[in-house]
Design a protein around this nucleic acid. Structure first.
Lengths: 180, 180
DNA sequence: CAGTTTGTTCATTTTTTCTTGAACAGGCAT
DNA sequence: ATGCCTGTTCAAGAAAAAATGAACAAACTG
């Protein structure tokens, strides 16, 4: 026996399908995700949760977006990792339910932390590796040129390292100044 | 008759192969390009030009990186479009020669202008389309929810729109303060 | 003008990335 | 325990993106 009788008709209608504007919002996030190099399904899932006020379970997400179990599971994992969704335990419900994080500051800082900072770290290692290679260069002209370029790269690295915290700060500040 | 005799032996040696550190730098830019969603070949080409002080012609780039004519041509076009390389006409040489733009500020603002701003523009259009869809929604609860979400999106849009110019400004400022 | 050199375009192929779904694992209830 | 409900993993398939190279165009050369 199915659990239909437990849901109010309004609820089941709510979850059953997407309204036009919701579809448009989901498409918007799909495009946004792609434009920052994230898989489409991440954008779709986030977009859906963004549209809804009530927490959704994975199987509802799968139905509404027509995505596979695998995509839903992995997508939600990534989103959680980015800090873009959080799971919320509903009393009496066994399934895990998800809601979207809608504070831009959180979204941005999560994205930067996961996507940008690792690259910066790796960059540091690369720079010192580079140092060794330049130092080991026989041709003196080439070595000199190498040193020059390395200095440029080191400068860039420093600047980008400074930029990231500033971005978080700015988004946070402007966000607050606009709230209500 | 080939034009070999015109080049000094030192020059032809210079162009003939990559030193170890150059290979490493090129690889660094390859990874950097991928991490911001640009094709690898863009990164490679930029990396090579970054390493060299002398302008390079397309056929030299092809040889040094072992990329096809098509990739080189398209890659250089994109890089020029991004403001990351400029072509330099050498007296007496028929081929077009390229040099890398190494001012971070230019690189960042070019990237933002080409990659971010178009999305922001499209976002504006999407938002007004969304407005129409929400207004046309029958279900009053859904419409109300839609309005709420739209306001959030509009706020984000405004904030990101403010952020971009600030980023350019900051990179410019810190860059100057570190020079020399 | 005919022949070269230089560079672009684009259909095809190759590579990479994303999605799918079946097998699996853990937990809850009976 | 046994069977069910949730969710994860991962090999295989599908889709998207990028690289290739041959055909083409344009501009110079003699």
């Amino acid at each position: 026996m199915t659990a239909y009788s437990i849901q109010s008709s309004k609820d089941s209608q709510r979850a059953a399908s997407l309204s036009e504007w919701e579809t448009a919002v989901i498409d918007l996030f799909l495009n946004a995700a792609m434009s920052v190099g994230l898989p489409k399904s991440l954008g779709q899932i986030y977009g859906l949760l963004f549209c809804r006020d009530e927490p959704l379970a994975m199987d509802e997400i799968m139905k509404l977006l027509s995505v596979s179990k695998g995509s839903a599971s992995q997508g939600l994992r990534s989103l959680r990792h980015l800090g873009a969704v959080k799971s919320q335990f509903l009393p009496g419900q066994r399934k895990e339910h998800f809601v979207a994080e809608i504070r831009l500051r959180k979204l941005v800082s999560g994205f930067l932390k996961e996507q940008a900072e690792p690259h910066l770290e790796k960059g540091k290692a690369r720079l010192s590796h580079l140092q060794e290679l330049v130092d080991a260069t026989e041709d003196l002209n080439s070595a000199e040129r190498g040193r020059k370029k390395m200095n440029i790269l080191a400068g860039w690295h420093r600047q980008v390292g400074k930029l990231l915290p500033l971005v978080k700060l700015i988004v946070g500040k402007t966000e607050r100044s606009h709230k209500r």
